[in-house]
Design a protein around this nucleic acid. Sequence first.
DNA 1: GCAAAAGTGTTTGGGATACACCCATGC
DNA 2: GCATGGGTGTATCCCAAACACTTTTGC
Lengths: 225, 225
Amino acid sequence: MKYTTPYMPPTLTVDAVIFQLVNNELNVLLLKRLNDPFKDTWALPGGYNAEGETTKAALSRIVNSKTGVDIDKDLTYVEQLFTFDTIDRDPRGHAVSVTYMGFARDISESISKENAALFPVNSLPDLAYDHASIIKYAHQRLASKLTYTNAMFAFLPPTFTLTELQLAYEAIIGRELDKRNFRKKFLSLEFLEETNEMRRDGAYRPAKLYRFKSQSLVALSRSFD
Amino acid sequence: MKYTTPYMPPTLTVDAVIFQLVNNELNVLLLKRLNDPFKDTWALPGGYNAEGETTKAALSRIVNSKTGVDIDKDLTYVEQLFTFDTIDRDPRGHAVSVTYMGFARDISESISKENAALFPVNSLPDLAYDHASIIKYAHQRLASKLTYTNAMFAFLPPTFTLTELQLAYEAIIGRELDKRNFRKKFLSLEFLEETNEMRRDGAYRPAKLYRFKSQSLVALSRSFD
DNA sequence: GCAAAAGTGTTTGGGATACACCCATGC
DNA sequence: GCATGGGTGTATCCCAAACACTTTTGC
């Protein structure tokens, strides 16, 4: 690429906030840095975006090589989050980071690097760069998204009980919900359909299993009038 | 900035979708390109983001130099929209564009370049690059934002009548609203306060003037339970 | 008095909230 | 029969939607 005037772009990086539920706690995938800056500090997986590579392709490449997780196969939903660009966010120099938020059912088997691990968002270690605020922003967006979309499909297994669904909601939005109201409301949204199966796994009444009608994002429209 | 491995970032650009109401039509600020590619075609104002410059600073610099509009003084609201990064969106080579959406009350006096002009979003000329889809995306986000925030403060003058408010809504969301329901609902949101003034400007009943309580964005929370 | 825009109220249906007990099962 | 989690219903309140006439003013 040629420029008519001298031009030097900032470094372009990508970072991923990958969420997964573990024992009804919202977890995020982190990587302990092997090099300076922030050597031995935990950070979001991310890296440099080369010319000729889309940000999502760079993300796939980097997350896969650094953690073993395959964005395309292991994640059930991905969306662009925000682009962070303050000058001093990277001590090495100006780096603009395009961040993504991804959801997964279970990436624990795919995590193949020793320095990659899942952490509960409510008890994160100290984080490198501005990554703590990026995670906070992503968590808010996720919680908001759950109120008007079927995004929870991306966290749950193909079939699940209504109690499991409710516990997943509570884990992410951080407060308890009323069982009867939750069921009434969620069923009325018509995101779910019943299966013919039941879950029986204890000395108590078996539970009906449900599934999401759609395995891709569906949003309810908010309208004004 | 040094890299431990050979590294070349894509070009980084910024583009602005600046909206303003003109005669109760939503308009967007465009610039007729003076050079190839897309010479003589209309496009969003934008340009190169240099190292050491935040995307918003680059936007201010570029929009001001190319159109005369001062982002900081002329716009009443600005937010980051999305980062577009497909490889072939710029025929000169891979350019990643961080886009912003801005709202203004009246920038017509500030537009000082011959090749800059406002166009109604419903009758846009052919546009360069992927700018038509960027404007469409921004318009949708704006319409959605109006349903749960006071964002309209950024388009209207400090005081206005309820009819003017309703016409502005209708212009942006693209359909008519019921006058009684609109007033009831909007007043119940408590974004507005009455002034003591009235507007009298014709052979008919004068209208009360209102103002927004806040001149910065306030969002209603959507909750699940 | 008439033209033009401002302003106003009621009914109805559906969703949000609050709240507590019975059901099915394994042991 | 008891412990455990699954499953359900009702009353109240508020908001959304539909819908048409009266008021104020300048001329």
